[in-house]
Simulated scan of single mutants.
Amino acid sequence: PSADDQSLRDVDATDDGRVVWFAGDGGALGRYDVEEGRLTDHSAPEDQTSTWTAIAVVGRAGAERVHLANGSGELLKGTYDDGDVAWGEIRKPGSGSSITDLAFDDAVGYACDSSQGVYATTDGANYETIGIEDANTDFAALAATDAELVVAGGDGTVFRYDGSVWTTLRAGETALRAIDLTDETGLAAGDAGGVFERANGGWTSVETPTDADLQGILVGAAGRERSDVAVGTSGTIVERDRS
């Protein structure tokens, strides 16, 4: 198997931005060295050819750790070294529902699935369930900082976890598809051009020039020439200057 002609579903980069990993259907998995312009096919790790639904990369190029999730609720960790990847054992923390998103910071990581499950790990291999009871919605995305974790729900709800307690906040009435978080602020995006910004302990609607369904969002950085960006269906890209 290879990444050729396969739909790709997620992408992430090493901490220094020198290497980009991407994953998708049919076990497709690739590594692109930005500086050298070299693309390497790592598809079907451990003979896994199911669809990779999410990927998270941790560490600097050349010694990065790659975390993969698939539509069968399975998680796989690999460590890159000198052109090869040493893969660990397949883990299935939940009931087998599709893992929809991953978020990692060093060894601390989180995953969410389509059946209201959220999982945490401190070694990238062993996961424990941390929520969410009575959520009554599916989970599309999550994001984390050192202080908190947020999960975007399909009914417009944002769930926040401070390490011990879950709290629930309503962002809007449309389904949320993506979320991003920094120490200073957060953004969530979803159907019908919906974007919501965290402010004063809650989430408020932000006007956008589109009614496309938004499926990805990134918080910009004031003073660093990086705007807030959201992407969605039909090639939609919207941005907002944060300076």
Rank of each mutant, 00 (worst) to 15 (best):
S2M: 15
D4C: 13
D5N: 15
Q6W: 12
S7F: 15
D12S: 15
A13S: 15
D15N: 14
D16H: 01
G17Q: 03
F22Q: 08
G24V: 04
G26A: 08
A28I: 09
D33P: 02
V34T: 07
E35Y: 10
G37E: 10
L39F: 10
T49S: 13
T49L: 13
A54L: 04
I55Y: 05
G59D: 09
G62I: 03
V66S: 13
V66I: 15
L68A: 07
G71M: 12
G73K: 00
G78E: 05
G78A: 09
G78L: 05
T79R: 13
D84S: 10
G88F: 05
R91M: 09
S97R: 10
V108S: 15
G109P: 03
Q116C: 06
G117A: 02
Y119D: 04
A120I: 13
T121Q: 04
G124D: 11
A125L: 12
Y127A: 05
E128H: 07
E128G: 08
D134T: 08
D134E: 12
D134K: 09
A135R: 00
T137K: 02
A141H: 12
G154N: 14
G156V: 00
V158E: 00
F159D: 06
G163I: 01
G163S: 07
W166G: 03
W166M: 05
T167G: 02
R170M: 02
R170Y: 01
E173L: 02
A178M: 01
D183V: 03
A188F: 00
D191P: 14
D191Y: 14
F196Q: 00
A199W: 10
A199Y: 08
W203G: 00
W203V: 00
T204W: 13
V206K: 03
E207W: 13
P209T: 11
P209N: 06
A212D: 11
L214G: 01
I217G: 03
L218F: 14
A222S: 13
G223H: 07
S227T: 10
V231S: 09
G235M: 06
E239Y: 14
R242T: 11
